[in-house]
Design a protein around this nucleic acid. Structure first.
Lengths: 153, 153
DNA sequence: GGAACGTAGTTGAGGATTCAACTATTTCCG
DNA sequence: CGGAAATAGTTGAATCCTCAACTACGTTCC
C-alpha cells in the first residue's frame, strides 16, 4: 500500500476549520429550533421542502432526496410529525405503492413561526460573519461536493 | 414582532448548497469510516485529538472541547472506545475529580490505518473538487463561524 | 400470463445522542 | 474554618438514527 496523499498544512487548516465550525453550527441550529419550536433541523427541513412543493405535498422518495435523508429516517420522522399534526400522509392514486406526504395548515403555520427565528440564527452565526465573496465561494464549493457525492441519501 | 431579515436569493442559494452538501458529505465520511474501520466520525475525531496531545492523553473536558462534543457524549463514546481497547481512562493525580483519557498503542495503530483511508475520502469528495481559493474562503469563513459560536460544546 | 426483478415505503432492533439529574471534588470568600 | 457555588465527569431514560429485513406493488420480457 503506497503512502497516501496527505493534506498540506493549509488544506488541513481549512478542512478542520470547516469540520469544527460546521459541527458547532448545526448544534446551535438544532438547539435553537428545538427549544423555541420543538423541531429538530431534520423535521424543519422536511417542512420547508413540503411547503415549497406544488400543493404542499411530495412523494416520500422525492422528499427524502430533497431533504437529504434516508427513506427509513424519513419514515420515522414523518410518523413523529404526523403525531404532532404537522404532516399528513395518504396513499397515491396512480401508484399504489406510493405515499404522498403533505403539509397540514397547522404544519405550515408552525413552519412560518419557526422560519422567522431560524433565519435570524442563520444570519447571526453564518451569513453575517462571512464576507459576501466567501459566501459565494462556499456556495460554489458545496455545489461541487454535492455533485461529486451524487444522489441517494 | 417585525418582519425578519429574510435571505436574498443568492444567500439562500449558497446557504442551502452548504447545508445540503455538508449533510451528504458527513454521511459519506461516516459510512466510509464505519464500513472500513468500524469507527464513527466522532470516535475518529477523539482518536485524532488524543494522538496529537502531549503524551497522547487529555483531560475529558479538554478532549470534549477539542472534538466539539458534549461531555456526556464524550463519556459514552469513550466507554465504547475503551471496550474496543483503543482508549484508556485513568484518574488524574492533581485533581481528584479529573480523568485522563489516553490513546493505547492499539488505538494509535487503528488511527493510523483509518487515517490513510480517511484522507483519501476527504480528498475525493472535498479537497479535490474545490478550487484552492474557494477552500481558503471556506477556512476563513468557518473560522469566523467558530469564533462567533464560541466555546462550550 | 407470470416469473424474475426493480421500486416504494415501513418496521423493529440495536446503537448512538441528548437531556437532566447525580456524585464527588475544588474554589471562593465571608 | 466552613458553607455556598462552581467544576469534572458519569449515568439512565427518552429520543433519534441506522441497518437489515420485509410487504406490497410495478415492470420487463419470454
Amino acid at each position: 500500500m503506497s503512502e497516501p496523499r496527505w493534506l498540506d498544512a493549509a488544506q488541513q487548516r481549512d478542512w478542520r476549520a470547516y469540520v469544527d465550525g460546521s459541527v458547532r453550527l448545526t448544534e446551535i441550529m438544532d438547539r435553537d429550533l428545538k427549544t423555541k419550536h420543538g423541531l429538530s433541523v431534520s423535521e424543519y427541513e422536511i417542512l420547508v421542502r413540503l411547503s415549497e412543493a406544488p400543493e404542499r405535498r411530495l412523494r416520500m422518495a422525492e422528499l427524502a432526496e430533497n431533504a437529504s435523508q434516508s427513506r427509513s429516517r424519513l419514515s420515522h420522522t414523518c410518523s413523529r410529525l404526523e403525531n404532532k399534526g404537522l404532516v399528513k400522509r395518504d396513499s397515491c392514486p396512480n401508484d399504489k405503492r406510493g405515499v404522498y406526504a403533505h403539509l397540514t395548515d397547522e404544519g405550515f403555520a408552525a413552519l412560518e413561526r419557526a422560519a422567522r427565528d431560524h433565519v435570524e440564527t442563520v444570519r447571526t452565526f453564518f451569513i453575517d460573519v462571512i464576507e459576501p465573496e466567501d459566501l459565494e465561494a462556499i456556495g460554489r464549493a458545496f455545489s461541487m461536493v454535492r455533485k461529486r457525492v451524487g444522489p441517494s441519501a
